[in-house]
């Protein structure tokens, strides 16, 4: 049954790295069904809500694969950017949309869950149904080369000695800040920074590291790539146990013997549907997402631009949200994050 539906050649399929092997197997089984019995859905345009502005990372990805997802479904998917409130507004709009399979959206745990934990909105994000994940963006720790920091352990020592005091990343109250607090409070890391300086995005944080306004900063691996290539920054470690495709030679902190902090150490770029969306619809959407990621266009774009595309099933999307909500409050003092203004 899969022959004419499973259009991807073996080589193309090889590009995709399955993070959820079980779900992939389940979907291969379903691959032939959409053209057969259930021809009803979708029979109209689908809206894809992006809770960020045009031109950002999430938007750039979406504008690549969403049209292919529409092609797979035989319909149009219209992108609607609903930026604001640290992505809580667009996510809220997704949450409140009718669960009819015609409104879906994408956000990136743990980023949006952290925003929700710091300033709780009136909806429960964990109730959203996962459709799948399409990429993973690990965080790395970067340093100004003039400090000649010899790896992550050396950095920890220098903070402990008081030689380094300032640690930085994106805005206070965001994922980077929570990561910094986690590493400070966690006995395994024991990263004793004195002051956290927040920047308006990874780009500005990396620039500030290069100009030595701050010695060390958290950055996304893609955000640090350009500066690292030019030796303007040293990349010390990757905060995801799965490592970074951009920096394959950089050790992860788990490689170095520190605790696994994957629930915070990487952005999992996911696609979600409102609570109550029928399982059948989710299956169709998941299948379309997987197929879209395997198209030649998306794959060659990914190869050319270095924007890694990695498919994951519905549960990898749901789990990323659930893990964030379970583990972050246990391990980080959220009150301290909220009170950051007074520090």
């Amino acid at each position: 049954m899969g022959d004419n539906n499973d259009r991807s050649s073996a080589t193309r399929r090889d590009y995709i790295k399955y993070t959820g092997a079980a779900s992939a197997a389940a979907m291969t089984g379903l691959a032939g069904c959409s053209g057969g019995g259930d021809g009803e859905y979708p029979d109209g345009d689908i809206t894809y809500i992006i809770p960020f502005s045009e031109g950002g990372g999430t938007d750039t990805y979406a504008r690549q694969f969403i049209s292919h997802m529409g092609d797979e479904l035989g319909t149009n998917i219209a992108i609607e950017n609903v930026p604001g409130a640290a992505s809580l507004r667009g996510t809220g709009q997704l949450y409140n949309a009718d669960p009819d399979g015609y409104t879906i959206g994408g956000f990136n745990p743990p980023s949006t869950p952290v925003s929700a934990m710091v300033n709780p909105p009136e909806y429960d994000m964990t109730k959203l149904e996962g459709i799948g994940t399409y990429a993973r963006t690990p965080f790395v720790v970067v340093a100004n080369p003039s400090y000649e920091i010899e790896g992550f352990e050396d950095m920890i020592d220098r903070y402990a000695d008081g030689e380094l005091e300032i640690f930085s990343g994106k805005e206070r109250g965001g994922v980077d800040h929570v990561l910094a607090l986690l590493m400070k409070g966690n006995d395994s890391y024991d990263l004793q920074w004195d002051r956290y300086v927040g920047y308006d995005g990874t780009g500005p944080a990396v620039q500030a590291t290069i100009s030595d306004e701050v010695p060390v900063s958290i950055a996304t691996d893609t955000g640090a790539a350009g500066a690292a290539e030019d030796d303007r920054i040293d990349v010390l470690a990757c905060l995801s146990s799965q490592g970074s495709e951009v920096f394959p030679d950089i050790p992860s902190t788990t490689d170095l013997g520190y605790d696994n902090i994957d629930f915070l150490g990487q952005l999992v770029r996911g696609v979600f549907a409102p609570e109550g969306t029928s399982e059948d619809h989710i299956e169709v959407l998941t299948e379309a997402l997987e197929a879209a990621l395997q198209t030649d266009e998306v794959q060659s774009w990914s190869e050319e631009t270095g924007n890694v595309v990695e498919y994951g099933g519905p549960e990898s999307a749901s789990n990323a949200v659930a893990d964030a909500f379970e583990q972050i409050p246990e391990q980080v003092d959220l009150e301290a994050v909220r009170d950051a203004a007074s520090q």
Partner: peptide, 9 residues
């Protein structure tokens, strides 16, 4: 970025 041009040096 979409067209594979990475800002930087």
């Amino acid at each position: 970025l979409m067209h594979g041009l990475r800002p930087g040096p």
